[in-house]
């Protein structure tokens, strides 16, 4: 397939990127391109210009400082998946990053590009919500930080302004918890039919607190607060996870996505299964 024509500008800094965007209304930012280029090829996106932010230095890499795990927006998924810092402080994120697409896609696709695109079937949004990540953003009007739960607004819709780009995501480091991501991948696209991230803080054999976020079957990730409450204080057993997971139906809301492969009804029925599986995997790590 062959994209339609567009102009191309390469940003040298985040400020430069904002300036270029203001000069070229309707342009799109290009990072790794793994969300955008497929749309260009199918001519489902026909922007007049692309602003390549892929070469901006300092936007890539994983660091831990001041109690925060920081992942630059241009960090490829493969690097996130392989990072021992991510595995230590946000294991669910490593799980999810390692299941995006396939190895070649993970080498090229970036964290920032993925979340800015905000595909409901993407893996990272739910994980970032469960981990209470914050999203660093910069634009013409300056820097700001948005909690993940306020970043993903709906299908392909985020809190990003037209001229803003994601600079990084941050997650509290050193937390005494276990986290995991359970995914039901589409057999063709590899996208998440359902993806559930769970974070459990253990208190002996009991759950002190839990955070659960569900993606894939909803337009934007949903925190499963009913499940979280139901599991808190309970024993860390598959039976209690299964019971608590049943509450996810109350958390999902009315808008459930369905398609040829998995209908609304089926996905709704599978949500508790994957919630329980993610809780179980998170608990196994929490106990360690």
């Amino acid at each position: 397939m062959y994209p339609a024509d567009f102009a191309y500008y390469r940003a040298s800094s985040v400020q430069d990127a904002g300036r270029l965007m203001n000069e070229h209304p309707g342009a799109k930012f290009l990072a790794g391109g793994h969300s955008l280029i497929p749309l260009l090829k199918l001519r489902l996106a026909v922007p007049p210009a692309l602003i390549d932010i892929g070469r901006i230095v300092d936007l890539s890499g994983v660091t831990v400082a001041n109690g925060r795990l920081r992942i630059g927006a241009l960090t490829p998924h493969a690097e996130v998946a392989a990072s021992s810092d991510v595995a230590t402080h946000a294991a669910a994120l490593a799980d999810a990053a390692g299941q995006i697409g396939d190895p070649a896609v993970r080498n090229r696709g970036t964290v920032g590009g993925n979340i800015a695109h905000a595909d409901p079937a993407s893996d990272l949004p739910a994980v970032l919500c469960a981990l209470d990540a914050s999203i660093g953003i910069v634009g013409a009007s300056g820097d700001r930080t948005v909690p993940a739960s306020e970043f993903f607004l709906g299908m392909m819709t985020t809190a990003l302004g037209e001229d803003e780009i994601v600079t990084h995501v941050e997650i509290a480091a050193g937390q005494q918890h276990g986290s995991a991501y359970a995914k039901f991948p589409h057999p063709a696209s590899r996208y998440a039919v359902i993806g559930v991230a769970a974070v459990i803080a253990a208190d002996g054999d009991a759950c002190r607190s839990a955070a659960v976020a569900v993606g894939g079957l909803v337009p934007a990730p949903v925190r499963a607060s009913n499940v979280e409450q139901a599991v808190s204080g309970e024993a860390l057993t598959d039976a209690s996870f299964a019971k608590a997971a049943q509450r996810v139906g109350e958390d999902l809301g009315d808008e459930i996505l369905g398609d040829l492969f998995a209908s609304v009804e089926y996905r709704r029925a599978m949500a508790p299964v994957y919630v329980a599986r993610s809780l179980s995997a998170a608990a196994a790590r929490a106990r360690k």
Partner: peptide
């Protein structure tokens, strides 16, 4: 590093 060259622009 392995990449899918159909999903990468030459300019990149």
């Amino acid at each position: 590093v392995a990449v899918k060259s159909c999903s990468c622009l030459a300019v990149q």
